[in-house]
Design a protein around this nucleic acid. Structure first.
Lengths: 352, 352
DNA sequence: TTGAAAGCGCTAACAA
DNA sequence: TTGTTAGCGCTTTCAA
């Protein structure tokens, strides 16, 4: 019954023609039954269904898409920075869920902040004739997508807005979120707050830096460039940068880390030096177990679930023919105080 | 230049025919150039390339697949429990990476341990005529995939083996890994070790329980059913179960948590009671920040990277025509001592 | 080396 | 209500 050698390609799949022959009806009648068209005699429906099931018939979506007027492939593309990072993974999962409910499958892609790869992946998706695209872009020039748009493919940008292209977008209010996070530190007496940021080319990284500047300005402080380190990508880079700051003669009393891995790197640097009770820290983006660290990490959290839901809603509306002006949805960030952001500055000039 | 209203569907895509007309060659010559067939005059190649680029031509993979002999869709399916959990996310990401390198895209799906959904999703993938499938199944009967296999679609099972179906598999050595983890606790003086496990229907969950029994047997101990709680799915459920055990009259001195969320739930229960210095814990599966908790969590780690690499290698070999007997690859687990597993039992009979 | 004709599996348009 | 014919965009086959 169960064979030892996987039997490959020995049997070809049944087609509508085969089903039609077995059910003794025309090809078109099978097509009608498969597509649930109501104008078919119940008896024939029954006969076709039986034949299809007997032959294990599975419709060929590609062939169907090729011929239909709308050309729909029942596929969307979801292109994110890195599907293995928790923020992206949650977004992907929600999009998948909402797509499945519509009978649509998801082609996924990651491009790690590489604009060149973004372009390649996106244009590759066009070869699959996806019905729509949700993208968190790495590049800052999206004119190359214009042709796709003209061909009728809707794009929804998430996390970062489109540049030189008119398209829907769902964004977090990073600037305000960061501003509030930094203000929170200032309220607790800090005036030497370091900022660790991601690539300056990334929209949200820039927004977060702006929010940091805003907060300082509101408090009558100015940005001290010696306390700002940007273009950090990894836990290790952030750990090194935070460590160097802590070891310097004018060490900060608090950190704002503008992205998950940078927060983790900062925690490590602070821990290494045994300063976890003395140095304050607010992170951007929540992460699993942030509440189990000691002290627990205060963060400004994005809402990946809400972002994904909004994005899917916008995309499917476009796919269904909505063609009003492009929409921009802003999802607010949430401040979560847990301990690390409520540490007051240690009065002594030398911390160690 | 940039319009206000996204222009949808106003322009149709260029086809090979259009490119042929512009380049003043036949359709077939365009096909040859697009497919990099060597037998085309350089001058014509140049002309076709120019025309294609001018028209923003993108080949239609669906149409191509429909006609070609091998019917390849340049697509594989990756079906996992939940793409938003870190273990799955890493696997997905690696598979995506290896696929892209071959010019193949990935259709993803999650089915949350629901056998019914597994079946629906997998059969849906068949409508896309995917070239192969990588699956971490929820069900224990995979005969329904037989037809797909016969139609030439290779399947590679990961994390859990195929049942009633002959197919390749890449598995972790959960039983041995767990056994070693539990033995480690016994070596540190524990003889009342609780086991928290996932759904008993899940292969790996069963294997891990067997490993636990093995370790106890080797040490001359027997399984105390009052210390075993299974069918736990969430952090909250594990937290409640671990808490109840800790509060009981014969509380364990150590825990083995057979899956990530269960480990986290156990940590929470122990913390709530201020017992983190008294109760030992070994978790199955590593997780981010396990080393930053206090105490840091000792785990038996799987290697999702290696699993994904092996699985992709097997799958692509099958796609390339390899048709030897089905393979079974076992990936060893790694023991990582970090502190929580090295706590010795507190001598006093009442811990609190 | 290049091209013309047929047809992959399906749906649109129309006829019976 | 059912069937026939044409053709979606491409590759195969075969002829030039």
């Amino acid at each position: 019954m169960v064979q030892t050698v996987p039997n490959r390609g020995s049997v070809s799949r049944a087609t509508m023609k085969d089903v039609a022959a077995l059910a003794r009806v025309s090809l078109k009648t099978v097509s009608r039954v498969i597509n649930d068209e109501p104008t078919v005699n119940v008896e024939l429906v029954e006969r076709v269904r039986r034949a299809a099931s007997q032959l294990h018939y599975q419709p060929h979506l590609g062939a169907s898409a090729l011929r239909r007027r709308d050309g729909r492939s029942s596929t969307i593309a979801v292109l994110l920075e890195d599907l293995s990072n928790p923020f992206s993974a949650v977004i992907y999962r929600v999009l998948e869920e909402m797509s499945i409910a519509r009978g649509v499958s998801v082609l996924g892609g990651s491009f790690d902040e590489d604009p060149q790869r973004e372009r390649e992946l996106t244009l590759r998706m066009s070869r699959y004739r996806v019905d729509g695209v949700i993208i968190a872009p790495a590049s800052r020039d999206h004119q190359y997508l214009r042709q796709e748009q003209l061909a009728g493919v809707p794009f929804v940008f998430i996390d970062r807005p489109p540049h030189l292209l008119d398209a829907d977008a769902v964004l977090s209010d990073s600037r305000v979120g960061t501003r509030d996070g930094v203000k929170h530190l200032m309220k607790h007496g800090h005036d030497r707050i370091a900022f660790l940021g991601d690539l300056t080319t990334i929209f949200t990284a820039q927004e977060r830096f702006n929010g940091y500047s805003d907060a300082l300005a509101i408090g009558g402080l100015t940005v001290d460039p010696r306390l700002v380190v940007r273009d950090l990508r990894t836990v290790e880079a952030a750990q090194a940068a935070a460590g160097a700051l802590l070891d310097s003669s004018n060490a900060p009393t608090a950190f704002f880390a503008a992205r998950n891995p940078l927060t983790v790197g900062t925690v490590r640097a602070i821990r290494e030096r045994g300063l976890q009770k003395d140095i304050a820290l607010v992170g951007c983006d929540d992460f699993l177990l942030a509440d189990l660290l000691e002290p627990a990490i205060t963060v400004v959290a994005q809402d990946p679930l809400a972002i994904a839901r909004e994005a899917a809603t916008l995309l499917f509306a476009r796919i269904d023919g909505e063609n009003g002006p492009s929409q921009k949805k802003i999802i607010e960030m949430t401040f979560i105080a847990r301990g690390s952001g409520e540490i007051r500055p240690v009065p002594s000039p030398s911390l160690r």
